[in-house]
Nucleic acid binder design. Structure first.
Lengths: 199, 199, 199, 199
DNA sequence: TATGAATGAGAGTTCATTCAT
DNA sequence: AATGAATGAACTCTCATTCAT
């Protein structure tokens, strides 16, 4: 008969799992998927090698899960800020503000995100597109589309323009340094895009 | 000592070298640096494994040389088109036109470029920045700076704005599919940026 | 101290033990000793991994115990049928009849038996020889020796001939399919051996 | 330009290949397929681990190739002796004589053969059946069938009887000790079978 | 007694690099 | 200059076993 309660076990498992995912993010960010190794990931998490495989069936799956969880957190943070505003222009600004703040705060996750997005591993790229679809839609519908409806943005194609905006965001986000600093502030970027969109 | 034979030898060496670099680009593009392997590279080039090491001391060095040669070709193509124009706005358009055309024509090189730029391998990223410095300056000085001088662009900071423009170009270039198609034409992109820069 | 509870406890232990042995037989039969794993064995038995080690000190010991228990059941079944007859020839027939019926009914045990007998694991092979010694003696003394004494079998060496008979039985038994079917009935085999032994 | 001649290379490759197959047989015989490891196989052959993979794509394939090559040698040896005789009875004797001599001379191969035939690895068992089909046919057609035609054997079913004879051979062959000794000579076995088949 | 999380030795496989020819 | 056989470190994944509860 098990002495641990079901809850206790669940609690422990969940914590271990999170530590492993965090460690995986760190190692993937540091060395890239291919060069990152399970031994280091587990050691970074404070476990032995085998433990990883009690939680994830493979290195590949570890990455796929990581992608999903990262995208979710990322979206939450951005959505939370963007939806505070009603005006499209303000939303655009909030998008860059929250986005830049995310990559500064979640350095490792940000790097993994970028590596997957622009890297050679097609499966991961695909997973990224799927996982980031909601954020893409947020930009497309609730910022650009909204701005057009509100009569402040030019009558541009919202979807491809959202692609451009996401590109700008991600391109800049990819150049964060190890202190979480970016080479440009969100203000000028937001400005640049704003100018591009305004009537 | 026969001089002609000397030249011939040089000629053959140079061709072999180019074939190896081309093959390396193909394999790096297909599998990424880490997963690409020397055996496949040499076989793609039509040589045996050992031959690679008669031309390049290591896989790493092969990539570094490739980066330099790619950047040079890339710059030449873009410069050739951009400098045909005198008006900054036209130059901007030419930049995107020639740039998009480059990634379509040089699919593999383009992918390697992107992988290095956004990938986890710091040394290669560094090498990319160095190799692409001239192109960056072209954009910064001979397009944006020029546009300001010509009084058509807003009085923005040319360097960071050049960063944004390069970001946009590279971000879009990274999404070329295997047929060399991009999800957006150069026209709308040029337009977008134009709007962002104009007074 | 409650005596009944003691017995109950013993009862439960014994049942758990049997379930584990049965599950071990299934897994050993399916994957062979080396590839069978404790986790699957315990799960097949309906327990957690650790439970196995409350009953058997190691995987190896689990097999050794299994061998002994299998051999005992096997012998009992065969002896029960063989000793119903008094004539050596009839006993020979019964031996094959009961033997073939055993391997059909106890598919997994039969496979484990064969795997150990012909497999590379010397310790298990040894254990098999020891465990099957009584059956060997049954054939040697109470069938072949008896037949010679009864004057129906040729004056052959009983021990090595018993070896041949056992070989034939086990060789055929090894080719049972997953439905418990053998490629030959006991009749023709008994016949074949009968012919070989008769004057 | 390669300095080794094509022939020289082929020669070296062939020798290395044979050494690896021999070593594999030794290790598979000693520890069984699952427990035998590539490192030991290569070391036994006098090479480093990686060399195995220059010749065989996987451990599994190594075994499959080994099975085929073993079966071929085995068949050649037996056929050579059997076909020296014209009388079925003498052929039967030769079959056992040559067969017993094979397992004594090719100890390790014999063990691998037996392990695969009676072991848990279905793919290898299948491969054995396929590879030994010609030998089975030799027994069925050119010994038993022939004996019936020659009027010395009873009118039995040749195929299933060949199965019995092969069983007897393999069963005994499986009990060779490490000095190549069997517990019974070919004479008594041949006699036993002869008796069983004769009118 | 039963549990399952954690361990780490050990296995198969890959591949950059070396080198004799 | 070109070859490809050989190497062995490094990697992913497996699993018998331990142990705190």
């Amino acid at each position: 008969m098990p002495r641990y309660s079901e809850e206790e076990r669940e609690q422990v498992r969940s914590e271990t799992r999170q530590r492993l995912l965090k460690a995986a993010a760190v190692e993937f960010a540091r060395h890239g998927y291919s060069k990152a190794n399970i031994d280091d990931i587990s050691k970074t998490a404070g476990f032995a090698k085998g433990t990883v495989y009690n939680y994830f069936p493979s290195k590949r799956e570890l990455m796929l899960v990581l992608i999903e969880e990262m995208a979710q957190v990322h979206l939450e943070i951005i959505a939370e800020h963007v939806y505070q505003e009603q005006a499209a222009e303000r939303r655009l600004e909030k998008f860059f503000e929250a986005g830049f703040s995310y990559v500064s705060a979640y350095l490792t996750q940000g790097m993994v995100m970028i590596n997957n997005l622009y890297g050679p591993h097609i499966e991961f790229k695909q997973a990224m597109y799927t996982a980031y679809q909601p954020m893409f839609e947020l930009v497309s519908r609730d910022i650009i589309g909204l701005g057009i409806k509100q009569g402040i943005f030019r009558k541009i194609e919202p979807v491809s323009t959202a692609g451009l905006v996401m590109n700008i965001y991600l391109g800049i986000a990819s150049q964060v340094n190890e202190d979480g600093k970016l080479w440009i502030e969100y203000g000028p970027v937001s400005d640049f895009v704003s100018h591009a969109l305004h009537k």
